[in-house]
Design a protein around this nucleic acid. Sequence first.
RNA 1: GCGGGUAUGGCGGAAUUGGCAGACGCACUAGACUUAGGAUCUAGCGCCGCAAGGCUUGCAGGUUCAACUCCUGUUACCCGCACCA
Length: 800
Amino acid sequence: MINTQKIEKKWQKYWQEHHTFETKIDHTKEKYYYLVEFPYPSGAGLHVGHVRSYTALDALARKKRMMGYNVLFPIGWDAFGAPAEQYAIKNHIHPSVAVKENIQTFKGQIQKLGISFDWSREFSTTDPEYYRWTQWQFLQFFKAGMAYKARKNINWCPNCKTGLSNEDSSGGVCERCGSQVVQKEKEQWMLRMSDYAESLIDGLKDTDFEERIKTAQINWIGKSTGAEVDFEIPQVHEKLKIYTTRPDTLYGVTFMVVAPEHPYIDLYSGLIKNMNEIIDYREKTNKKTEFERTQLVKEKTGVRIDGLTAVNPITKKEIPIYISDYVMMNYGTGAIMAVPAHDERDYEFAKKFGIEIIPVIEGGDISKEAYIGDGKMIHSGILNGLDNKKDSIQKMLDYLEEQGIGKKKTNYKLQDWIFTRQRFWGEPIPLIYCEDCGWVPVPEEDLPVLLPDVAEYEPTDDGESPLARIPEFVNTTCPHCGKPAKRETDTMPNWAGSSWYWLRYMDPHNEKEFVSKEALDYWGKVDWYNGGMEHATRHLLYARFWNQFLYNQGLVPNSEPFKVRAAHGMILGEGGVKMSKSLGNVINPDDIVENYGADALRTYEMFIGDYEKEAIWSEQGLNGCRRFLDKVIRLADKVVEKKEYSKEIEKDIHKTVKKVTEDLDSLKFNTAISALMILLNKMEKMDAVTSKDFRTYLTLLNPIAPHLTEELNEMCHLGEPLCESSWPTYDDSMLVDEEKEIAVQVNGKVRATITVHIDDDDQTIEEKAKAAENVQKHIEGKEIVKVIVIKGKIVNIVVK
RNA sequence: GCGGGUAUGGCGGAAUUGGCAGACGCACUAGACUUAGGAUCUAGCGCCGCAAGGCUUGCAGGUUCAACUCCUGUUACCCGCACCA
């Protein structure tokens, strides 16, 4: 009997010693680049969810190699960032030591699964040889004017003591530790990602991402079109610029609202009579977290600015200005025109503050709620008579531009990327501040700026990076003028290292460039990128943005880095709940490998269900797959030496080759395995199978269960190792059956099945159908209205 | 609220895109071998019914000779975004 432990080790060693999966540039072969999101080597070890996606792409990669492609299938480690640091702090070891340990664990676990990664290309984002180039690329952003420092109200996690991007603090809680996020003003390095909003939407055209991923990205970027309109503030002869998507409702504007942080408030504080009240409101708002501010939707609050008014540029009517926290400073212009008749929020506000409500679109009942539907324009001067939104907006836009009081404008929710963290465990930002020269980049030859080796890496309470406490690190000289200067002490966010890692895989040991042009030209785009749905917006947008920037700088040949992006579903614990330590339902892949073997685990995870949907772990299901593999082993006893397929299953084999080939290509691993089970069930019933039958069978199964199939191939002397062989082909003529059973329906109900020959014409089939015993019974004495014969499929007899 | 998606036996899930619903696997039942086993083999297994037959893809309609598949309406759940003007 076969010892899975032994043979798995044996073949893993074989692949390693023969460098089977190591790839080199080879212009005689077509390239294919499979990428899996590199893991964060956490202390918890590998999860069965990792196994699912790695096995899936491993199967695809193994098949593609057998089909003659030069396959790049690399792996590495995304090891910077808060989790690694938190782990290190908790366990009182330096992050770099902890990371090293965790990587060892992960690597061991992955290797036990027999994933065909090219380990010669392995790196970690925390390697100085790697982050040297992360820093170098940051400097390209800086030099291109794409990085800037701004004093910003940022999301601050009081527990992690660091600033967080909007992406990391969604819902008002810290992504990492779950604490309530508060607002704090800090100087931050920003990347001008919002400049790329349009291009990030546009670029999706050049990709083959799953629809749900495209949609998630488009929603996140949040494009909207409308107009900017100037409202005069007569007291100061200055314009208040607002953004609206509904310029058609301009005649219905009865008040203005500005964000509490709007600069005009301080600018014209001298004219505002109730400044105390305003400041009071603003402070209250500031104490609210982003979460509270967006959650307390029930009651509108605000304060009228006493002393300033605005003039509606269309009606020339003078209207009040309020401040309210339902208007955000970071979107549009931080000021809105309020149309209570046709906007729910404005309606609520107007009701509460007793402001006039003027309907300008017919429909609804203004005494009850804002009417947000379409309709005929009323009380609307030049727009009167138009009967739909689209035309009205267009006419108003034309008028605004003609009069010079407004213009068409597109807005995006996507904001600039806050590119700073006040943490130790990240790439140091390679900039130096000089009193005379300002911010100066560290010269390229001085890169990388190494993280100093220190004892204290815990964050500080004052919001400064721990690096700020290390004089030897901070104090330096200006590369420009040579005077004493200070280093930037903030580090990059953990998204930095993952924003270009697929490029480094192409040329991981290059000491002169981040990647050579030759490697870029050969490997091109990532053909297939697999990752979790949780990264559909953040990581995937950052990576695309970064790549588009590099492209615009002429540093990479493609604007879009990834052709296909697919996402695997999560694996849930029994009962359909998320696996978690606290529930004690986490499955450790090591245990499964030990008890059932890596091949059984792989087969099970591929068989568990639709790859893109979530799946529920079941030990019994796993056992079923183990049984399947055992049956394959037992089949080896029946193999007889013969270089042809067995006649009785020849067609089945051809069909299975086609089915498995196509199913693997479209990620239908479950049905591919099912097809192999069906073929196996047939072969089991035979007295003997030929060596060619078995060899083809093993080849088809090899991408899923590579160890066992190699072993059986060797044991039965079927030929060279499968990893060095080619993928089987099928013959179209072998896919057609001479005879086939088809159903006969009477009035749409199946009454019999008949056997038809491929050469039978409709007439013959119809006669056979009518002759069937049970059909006779149902058509006897009735008038046949119609007979439908669909060749090779079905016969339907309609009777009255 | 906006956007995307899902719904099929006791369970995980199939269905060549309009052509025999429930492939394959799990669980279960009976039998064989063994006679403790979580091993293996054989047969059965959507629901009602002794049977003939009838019913069945969240629910209600519609188109069609024929609907899990197309159309209309509706419910539930999941995911993403969200006082975004």
